[in-house]
Amino acid sequence: MHFIVNGLQHDLLLDTRMSLLDMLRERLALTGTKKGCNQGACGACTVLVEGERINACLALAVQYENRPITTIEGLGDAEELHALQRAFIAHDGFQCGYCTPGQICSAIGMAREAARGVPSAVTTDLVMEEVELSHDELRERMSGNLCRCGAHNGIVEAIQATFVREDAA
């Protein structure tokens, strides 16, 4: 099976039962993506496929052949952090850091959704032309990512600082 992860090509022989999460962690040693609940409930395993956020724990790897996958390792590294990674540091968006890679991948996918006008459960005007990422909107849109340390306020601030224009906040 052929996979494209963070721009690199990989040919792997896999059992059909292997999840995308286990493939990334165990076969490619990309351990930035975390396993929390392994059942879709916590978001720690969030990665981007063709720019869209998904839970890698519920994904069978075989379904994601030949599609560009981005993990936290593909977003930035210690020398050059992604703007959102810098914002997480500046705004205390984490304590233990376990949920952080998932939060960051999720927020990047979320920002793309908002930019193309995807509404959320708290959007009052469904037919609006532009999404305003208010505090309530961000909380709702990020509700698939839990943080056991309760760093949610810092997380929302970091996302707001990165993706929301000053005048819209």
Partner: peptide, 12 residues
């Protein structure tokens, strides 16, 4: 739809 599951799950 938007009131169900999470952004990630709705994408899948």
């Amino acid at each position: 739809i938007l009131s169900g599951a999470s952004g990630q799950i709705r994408n899948m």
